[in-house]
């Protein structure tokens, strides 16, 4: 972990860390190095990845429409709305 990678990660995650936070993140990453060694020591060459811990498959629903909440309810906690839209500063495309 270096400063340049950290800067990119901040950008990527829409965060701006203080100098002190940056230092502790870098320290955190260096602690994780040992963890990586632990993981590397485990032979996973012939092991399939396990995303889901329970072996169930194909959970699907029927194509049916239902509307649960109104726009007013969904926008009740919105910081800014206008004419039924959520609002953000002008986005340039």
């Amino acid at each position: 972990m270096d400063r340049e990678i950290l800067r990119r990660l901040e950008l990527l995650n829409q965060l701006s860390l203080t100098e002190q936070e940056k230092e502790s993140v870098i320290a955190f990453f260096s602690d994780r190095e040992k963890d990586l060694e632990t993981l590397d020591a485990i032979d996973t060459a012939d092991v399939e990845r396990m995303v889901h811990v329970m072996p169930i498959m194909t959970v699907v629903r029927e194509d049916k429409v239902s509307q649960i909440f109104s726009r007013e309810e969904l926008q009740a906690a919105a910081p800014e709305t206008d004419e039924g839209y959520w609002c953000v500063p002008k986005v340039m495309e």
Binding site: R61, K64, V65, S66, Q67, I68, F69, R71, L74, Q75, E83, G84, Y85, W86
Partner: peptide, 17 residues
């Protein structure tokens, strides 16, 4: 389960949490 037919609908009328 929101309606997928959004074309021409009122803004944010086919939405859920």
């Amino acid at each position: 389960s929101c309606s997928a037919h959004s074309y021409g609908a009122e803004p944010n009328s086919h939405v859920c949490p």
